[in-house]
Computed example of a mutant assay.
Amino acid sequence: MSGQRLVVVHPDAQVLAQAAAARLLTRVLDLQSVHSPVHLVLTGGTVGIAMLAAVATNPVRDAVDWSGVHLWWGDERFLPDGDPDRNETQARRALLDHLTTLPAENVHPMPAADGTLTVEAAAERYAGELAAFAPEGEQAPVFDVTLLGMGPDAHVASLFPGHPALEVTGVTTVGVRSSPKPPPERVSLTVETIQASREVWIVAAGAEKAQAVADGLAGDPAAPVSAAVGTAVTLWLLDSAAAAQDVTLA
């Protein structure tokens, strides 16, 4: 069952990225006061990466015990290791390379294309990684915060409207083929895995996202973002352009 829903609107994308970064750091510090480790799911996209870059430059960054944080990804483009379009590559440049106290083993990127691995096998491999850090009887860690961007078509992670990957159940990950957005092959967490997160934060900016935001907040079943809910909190972090249609503010 989903928990509380909050909507916060910032003036523009730059302020959104900075404010979301400060919010995330504060949340991690709060979480570390009560349990360890903390499991975070990262996202890509323009605003998502800008948010990570803002974390890197925020002085509160060094107050976090990064040895007690595990980083995961909600989805990944199935491209070779180091490809500039991979979310992992962009996240490393924006933030991870600056976190000198973050153990390498705490970073859990999705498998890269190596010419032999299929996208389905990559998804299965990541499912195995998730299972290795899961509580007994579970398939994945309990994610404290899952960050998600959102496309103008209301997709989240690599779960696109009308795509078969949306309907996959019983597993934590899915290999996506024939993605409507290039590249065609991707690995994604499933809807069920996202919904098991304690908190889901949807970060979106731009007028082209306004209809998708409205559809998601209205619970339109055709909008994948409407299914992206946390068990405790679902937090929509928007800029004013993305919130141009009527939204209920926190």
Score class of each variant (00 low, 15 high):
24 L>E: 01
24 L>D: 03
25 L>E: 08
26 T>R: 10
26 T>I: 07
26 T>W: 00
27 R>H: 09
27 R>D: 13
29 L>N: 07
30 D>R: 12
30 D>Q: 13
31 L>D: 11
31 L>T: 05
32 Q>K: 07
34 V>E: 15
34 V>T: 14
36 S>N: 12
36 S>T: 14
36 S>E: 13
36 S>D: 12
37 P>D: 10
37 P>Y: 06
37 P>V: 08
37 P>W: 06
38 V>R: 03
38 V>Q: 03
39 H>P: 14
40 L>D: 00
40 L>V: 01
40 L>A: 01
40 L>W: 00
41 V>P: 05
42 L>A: 08
43 T>Q: 10
43 T>G: 08
43 T>Y: 07
43 T>D: 09
45 G>R: 07
46 T>Q: 12
46 T>A: 12
46 T>R: 12
47 V>G: 10
48 G>T: 04
48 G>V: 03
48 G>M: 04
49 I>E: 08
49 I>V: 15
50 A>Q: 09
50 A>D: 07
50 A>V: 04
51 M>D: 04
51 M>E: 01
52 L>A: 12
53 A>N: 09
55 V>P: 02
56 A>Y: 02
56 A>W: 02
56 A>M: 04
57 T>G: 07
57 T>S: 13
58 N>I: 00
59 P>Q: 11
61 R>W: 02
61 R>M: 00
64 V>T: 05
64 V>P: 02
65 D>A: 10
66 W>N: 05
66 W>T: 06
67 S>Q: 07
67 S>C: 02
67 S>I: 01
69 V>G: 03
72 W>V: 12
73 W>Y: 15
73 W>Q: 14
74 G>W: 10
74 G>N: 12
75 D>V: 04
77 R>D: 01
78 F>H: 10
78 F>I: 05
83 D>R: 09
83 D>V: 11
